[in-house]
Design a protein around this nucleic acid. Structure first.
Lengths: 196, 196, 196, 196
DNA sequence: AATGAATGAGGATTCATTCAT
DNA sequence: GATGAATGAATCCTCATTCAT
């Protein structure tokens, strides 16, 4: 039973399935991800998954949505719009890093989503843009007052967020080790990349 | 280069299969990639693939190797070790970008490889390290004379190469447009990221 | 008529389920007939069905029984044993036709029942024989006084009732159109078939 | 290789699968017909079926086509257009009956086809019409010179062929026994049904 | 070397049925 | 009685791989 700390059983089971999907994807990637394994990991019967999701693709799509939302909501935690622009920027990246450390799954998975068949994801991208609005506003402000290079949002994201995600993944795959002082210098580096 | 020692048909067919694999992966991703489709696209019988590769995983692994080698050999074309360090750096990144523009497949595919089950790829990474030796030597030199930040190779790669790859992919997916002057500024930005 | 001895809700729900089953079968056939769909169409919960029927097969069997009874009770409506034999015969066939026009479901379904696994239906056939007793008595009388061909009941039924059912089905599937004068000639034809 | 009209292996396997499907349908009906059982009965692997047929529906459809063709080609064997009309008619019905006795499967199955979802069968009906052309020509001639009742083809078929099929089925299900003299009288009866 | 028909384990999904509420 | 979430066996179908030719 248990699991009851939050809303009701139903919501619970949906969550359990999403979480199990996430952990399975992080562990094995889309290779070797099967609905049967998922059911086992989630501790539900195979058929139960289909009570909460239309099919495999729907499940993946909903998970994507969920992960994006979670990353975003963590990235912008403790946001202080009175702080200086580089301070705001550092906080966001730091948040993303910390979130990546705590929830390896979300980040490991993220990279895989980018290479799904477009028809599964295309319309999800808009949702993603929306949810990262605060960061795009930050970029806007920075470009306006000359603190940040005059490059499109996507480019700026590619320059500072993508490397971070990549490093988180490598960290969890034991391909890289990064201590705190190194991390601070990495933050400097990403700021250098986008700053004028 | 290699591969060219066997001149006849054999080498040919191996190549044809690798190329077909690449184009199929770039088009559809690992989702919807099947050996039968591959055989069709390559214009060979299903069984023929197994004359040149042990199995699916071996094929993927060999393709990875191949793509890494091709990227590397392109990245370091026209390399001039007498040029200044930032000039050498810019040439490499420019090469990578141009290669990405010419061979979308290779780059689109690359991202997908990073999320394969580790046992398929683990030992390939060493090969990758080896092949990118020139870039690592560049980093070494730069760190030594203080032009480049004192960060591990992997971090530096994440800061300058990963964003580029990401942008190439986005470009081919029509999610981003980058003209020449923008590209020059992106080169500046990546240098800013790793430079002191 | 039966069934009416239990007046309350119980009888009601059983009826509702049987009716929904009939309409679903007529619409989709056994292909694509599922208990869940049935529950939905009947406006009850899936589990409720099992309060009134042992299982799927029992439900189908009971429906068969029900349909046969309904056809029979309609077929012999207004029966007048003083009328001439051909008149009696025509009335029965006319009743069957009219019933088929009013309740397409019952007739469309009938054909499908004939091809169920024997173990579901075998013992239902006796019930069917019993319920069509009046028609068999008619045949007996006709054979005795030489008005009707000396052939077994089953053959006579096959000669005059089966074509009618077939035509009703085709009519509802829009494969055939039959107006009133044509129908009268069809009645003549079926009588010709069995009459001496 | 192969594809020879007679002995080749390929053609063989397709036939084997069609035959196994037929016998399974005749035995169990659509209830309890599964691709796995079919594979077993046909003596091939499950996947093999899909080398010859797109999917379950395609298989059923192709079988229908096949059965219709076989019935037709038997029905019109030894057709002699110089014989009198009733003689021609009797020969056809006799052929159908004999075919039904020899190949119970085909006939038992036929009834079931009529109740498949329309989208599987709709376009097959046209093929069926075409293949029964000789019988429709007979009806035409008979209507013209007044020997046969002026009723649509479908009605005439329902009056004389449907009863026969029904009786064949009942015969094979041991619900009816018909000896030769009875059969002759049945032929008379069907002629009476459609004749003026 | 090359083929491609055949395999059958494994995939996603459905569905009759149960049972705690 | 009534519910409907949960089950898991069974379904249809795919696909990497083999092997006789």
């Amino acid at each position: 039973m248990a699991r009851c700390d939050l809303p009701g059983k139903t919501a619970d089971k949906r969550r359990v399935i999403l979480d199990a999907t996430l952990s399975l994807l992080a562990e094995r990637g889309f290779h070797g991800f099967s609905m049967k394994q998922l059911a086992e990991r989630a501790g539900v019967a195979a058929g139960t998954i289909y009570l909460y999701f239309d099919d495999r693709d729907d499940l993946i799509g909903k998970l994507h949505e969920d992960v994006v939302r979670e990353i975003a909501s963590n990235a912008f935690a403790n946001h202080d719009s009175n702080a200086t622009l580089p301070e705001q920027f550092r906080l966001i990246l730091r948040n993303i890093w910390q979130f990546g450390m705590l929830r390896p799954c979300a980040m490991l998975t993220k990279g895989q989503f980018d290479h799904l068949p477009p028809d599964i994801l295309r319309n999800r991208r808009d949702a993603a843009r929306e949810v990262f609005l605060p960061m795009r506003q930050l970029f806007n402000a920075g470009r306006k007052d000359g603190q940040i290079k005059d490059l499109p949002d996507e480019v700026l994201v590619a320059l500072c967020v993508d490397p971070l995600c990549s490093m988180v993944s490598q960290h969890h795959l034991d391909l890289i080790q990064i201590n705190d002082t190194e991390f601070e210098r990495i933050l400097d580096a990403t700021w250098d990349a986008i700053a004028n």
